[in-house]
């Protein structure tokens, strides 16, 4: 019973939230349209949180993902102003993400700086670079190719649901693909199992021949890459780019991973649980907005729920 509660307390809480919104908003909440909206609204956070899960599996953090997302958006937008084709601009922005992540990995695994300190420093630096490259300005309007902005507005038509045309948004599809790839990587490959080994006991992993440094380097590069992808998705959604626009993603991604980890057996991050964490945050934002709850009260509630979930989980574990 206690084990069940510890493992599924968050899930029960999530179900309670869903039922609450369903009852309070009978006509609008549990509709295909609304859920597709939520999936689209959360797609960027899903991508960042997936990448964050990769490093958090090893017990590390990456605080620089928000700045990286902003920078990637700026890089793509700047290249658009020089008339680069979309695929080229997006590829360069993704490479910037991988490279930035690799720098994090180098600092942490080869120089030996704590992830918190190293990525805090790169957070500041990447943010500074985004400001320098953009001149502090928002790049928008005609500089952004129309088809780039349209990407985030379009999707695959799913037909009519109750008289309303519904489509699966492109951003949601991107998020699903990323989740699938990261899931295979973490759960189905030796690489993933080794990351979990590092997270379990880094010394033991090292002694049993796991190439800790190299794995960390790769893991942080991937996190940087996903952050850049999320930044590009954000830029497409707002059809513009601004040197600070990704900054909100970092804390929410960490919160989602923590929320999700309350669902796993030993409190370790698992990708699918991270997605549950993202959904909790997304559903709260969506449902509370529809209920006209003050946006500041919403922030307090979200923080409270994270505290509640994590403390319930650790309390139950202690009793065990």
């Amino acid at each position: 019973m206690l084990t069940l509660l510890r493992r599924y307390g968050t899930l029960v809480g999530f179900a309670a939230i869903l039922i609450f919104f369903w009852v309070s908003l009978p006509d609008t909440f549990m509709t295909a349209r609304n859920w597709l909206n939520i999936s689209q609204q959360m797609s960027m956070l899903i991508v960042v949180a997936s990448g964050m899960t990769i490093v958090m599996v090893m017990g590390d953090f990456d605080l620089s993902v928000g700045s990286m997302a902003s920078l990637a958006g700026i890089v793509a937008a700047i290249l658009f102003t020089f008339d680069y084709p979309i695929w080229a601009a997006v590829s360069v922005a993704l490479l910037v993400g991988l490279a930035g992540g690799a720098v994090n990995g180098l600092l942490i695994s080869f120089v030996g700086i704590l992830p918190f300190v190293a990525t805090l420093a790169t957070l500041t630096m990447l943010s500074g670079v985004a400001f320098v490259v953009s001149g502090g300005k928002t790049i928008s309007g005609r500089a952004i190719p129309e088809s780039f902005g349209n990407f985030a507005r379009e999707g695959i038509a799913l037909g009519d649901w109750g008289g309303v045309a519904v489509s699966l948004p492109n951003l949601t599809i991107v998020a699903i693909v990323v989740v699938a790839l990261v899931w295979v990587l973490l759960e189905q490959t030796t690489f993933g199992r080794r990351l979990y080994a590092i997270g379990g006991n880094i010394e033991a992993a090292h002694l049993s021949g796991v190439a800790v440094r190299r794995l960390k380097l790769i893991a942080f590069s991937l996190t940087g890459g996903t952050a850049a992808l999320a930044g590009i998705m954000y830029a497409s959604r707002v059809a513009s780019s601004n040197p600070t626009q990704g900054s909100g993603l970092m804390l929410n991604a960490i919160a989602a991973v923590f929320l999700g980890s309350t669902l796993s057996e030993h409190g370790e991050p698992r990708l699918l649980y991270t997605i549950v964490g993202v959904l909790v945050l997304g559903v709260l934002d969506n449902g509370l907005t529809q209920l006209s709850v003050d946006s500041y009260v919403r922030q307090i509630l979200v923080g409270g729920i994270i505290l509640l979930a994590v403390s319930t989980s650790s309390y139950a574990r202690r009793l065990n």
């Binding site: 909100g248 529809q290 946006s295």
Partner: peptide, 26 residues
């Protein structure tokens, strides 16, 4: 009127999300 003021604290993409939510809410 029932006026609902929503601040997304600098997040422009969240403005889109909240407009979508308000459209859902009709």
């Amino acid at each position: 009127w029932d006026v609902n003021v929503i601040d997304t604290a600098g997040d422009v993409a969240a403005v889109i999300s909240r407009i979508e939510d308000m459209v859902t809410q009709n």
